[in-house]
């Protein structure tokens, strides 16, 4: 519970065409924790994720991951440092098979060089075949093994969510950022997703979850960060925050959530 700081966000700000989305936001995420990021709609939660993962660049401030500055780096570079994120709706490579989707999560990038793919094709295929057992174990875990050879686009919405978690499990990131993993998910699948997040933690990943579903946050997260109007207004254990008047105001005063 008391690991070193893995992600340090210091005073980042971002405005889109005059509208301030993130305003001098700072937070620290310690290694090995599951942190819930909550706040009313428009609080800037998704913007913070975009800024951390390089999909947007902050106007000012700094983001450090394990001591390395992330600001100014491309999303793929940040990902290679060990950060995987999701989006509000599940994204899959629609015309690839389910097993290929997970393989891409697992795959080491050197294997995808044009030269090696051309010259050492057979060796690469053997390497991949060796991994198949591991990949299928992950697929079984997420109940996708039966559909592993069909196109990802044919999956149901819930299966696509699970595929996303299977991919993350294969990628084994140091930091996982989940943007509303419970959006539009039924209760039974919700249970499974909570389980998946605990699995990620057990496997050694630090997790940030953006979510509106407070009971889910309470059950899953070690710590909660509350945002409103683009900045962090509170950080701490869920139970402590329930009585924080600013948090209650943010949720009840500005929004109907």
């Amino acid at each position: 519970m008391t690991g070193a700081a893995l992600l340090e966000i210091r005073d980042i700000s971002k405005s889109f065409g005059g509208v301030v989305a993130v305003n001098r936001c700072s937070m620290t995420v310690r290694e090995g924790t599951v942190v819930g990021l909550i706040g009313p709609n428009g609080a800037g939660k998704s913007s913070v994720i975009d800024l951390v993962t390089g999909f947007e660049h902050p106007d000012s401030g700094s983001v450090r991951f394990d001591g390395t500055e992330l600001v100014g780096r491309r999303p793929d570079v940040i990902s290679r440092m060990g950060i995987i994120r999701t989006f509000q709706s599940p994204r899959e490579w629609r015309d690839l098979t389910v097993i290929d989707n997970v393989r891409i999560g697992r795959s080491n990038l050197a294997r995808e060089s044009l030269f090696r793919s051309l010259v050492f094709a057979r060796g690469l295929r053997r390497e991949e075949a060796k991994e198949t057992g591991e990949i299928r174990a992950i697929l079984k875990d997420y109940r996708l093994d039966d559909v592993r050879n069909s196109r990802a686009v044919n999956l149901s919405g819930g299966q696509k969510r699970l595929l996303e978690f299977a991919r993350i499990a294969a990628a084994r990131p140091r930091l996982t950022i989940l943007d509303e993993p419970m959006g539009g998910v039924n209760p039974v699948l919700g249970e499974r997703i909570g389980e998946a997040i605990r699995d990620l933690k057990r496997a050694g990943s630090t997790v940030i979850v953006v979510e509106h579903n407070l009971p889910f946050i309470e059950k899953t997260c070690d710590e909660v960060v509350v945002m409103d109007l683009g900045s962090v207004i509170a950080q701490g254990a869920f139970g402590d925050l329930r009585d924080n008047s600013r948090v209650v105001d943010a949720y009840l005063g500005n929004d109907d959530e």
């Binding site: 065409g17 998704s46 975009d50 999909f55 947007e56 491309r74 999303p75 989006f87």
Partner: peptide, 10 residues
């Protein structure tokens, strides 16, 4: 027109 096309962005 203000704004831009999205490529690698959410």
């Amino acid at each position: 027109v203000r704004g831009r096309i999205s490529t690698v962005r959410a």
